[in-house]
Design a protein around this nucleic acid. Structure first.
Lengths: 171, 171
DNA sequence: TTGCAATTGTTGTAAATGCATCAATCGATC
DNA sequence: GATCGATTGATGCATTTACAACAATTGCAA
């Protein structure tokens, strides 16, 4: 295996991934979010709620890759704007359940088509089979990174077994 | 073509891309950057210089997706730390050429193997052919997004070596 | 039951970020 | 050469962010 001493950016996967991610964020901010005064983090929270239903803040943090403290203030903001509600969980008195308001659902209904159009723009020219393979690769790489990094489970990973995320199993 | 009204995150490409990007950033920050007091943006600048040689700040902004104003302050910091030098371009008196110091090169030489190891961790289990296809897809999608919005100039990018940042239509 | 560690969320604080603006320089056109 | 718009970089400023420390609640174990 070649042990390079320099980094060829155009071949370096983290660079390709984050460069594309930045471009997607910039485009969507301009095309859809700017006119509504929303940040990309807000959009991620809204979509996470749309996709998963009402969730606790810590779950939203997990889904959106936004820090919990940042998320706390962000949710406060979204409540003020009237896009989400915060209510104490019935199960536990320290948990907070965040849910979309009807107004948020209408807003999202307006933005989702723009998001899908952007996705189509990005993948234009890509054969459907390659697109599916790419998505699968992105998911697999994410799983690889979320595994515990200790050498203990290295064997399990090499064996190709599908491994869980790092977080605790949902109880 | 199906016109969905909801967004399935696990199938939505921008989500998969940015989620993976965040994971890569977090892992590399922990594994390599934290102990040296470097930020991910600093690392990107350093690698961009390693890969491309001395560059102007605006070029580094293009390569790293970091805003020019942020970059200006960032370079100032890197100069203070002694990792890069700023000198006036000989060609133009307003341009500034940023270059790595020998110390930076030694530091990068230490970090690059960690970066490559992280890349190998991420792609473990992926057949080489699929990895190449994935990289090609990521590059193609980036190009699709960086083109002017209209489908007009699809051919122009083939000839162009450097893709310029999107700018408002020339008036 | 009591004690204690873990979970969940909030807040203080310093640093980072992005937008707008400004300054300096360049280049093309007259 | 003079003028004017474009390019490149720096800075003012308000916002956002992340890391800690903290508070409240929960669940487990002795």
């Amino acid at each position: 295996m070649p042990r390079r001493k320099t980094l060829k950016l155009s071949e370096y996967l983290p660079y390709l991934v984050n460069r594309l991610g930045s471009a997607l964020v910039m485009r969507f901010s301009e095309d859809a979010l700017a006119r509504h005064g929303l940040s990309i983090a807000m959009w991620r929270v809204l979509v996470a709620l749309l996709d998963n239903g009402p969730r606790r803040q810590i779950d939203l943090s997990e889904i959106t890759s936004v820090d919990v403290s940042t998320l706390s203030r962000l949710i406060t903001r979204l409540v003020q704007i009237g896009l989400v509600t915060r209510k104490r969980s019935s199960r536990s008195n320290r948990e907070v359940i965040v849910a979309l308001t009807p107004r948020a659902e209408r807003l999202i209904g307006e933005l989702v088509p723009i998001a899908l159009r952007l996705e189509r723009t990005a993948i234009s020219g890509l054969p459907a089979a390659e697109l599916q393979a790419t998505k699968a690769a992105l998911r697999a790489m994410y799983r690889n990174l979320m595994q515990p990094k200790g050498p203990i489970l290295a064997a399990a990973r090499i064996s190709g077994a599908v491994v869980r995320r790092r977080r605790r199993p949902r109880s």
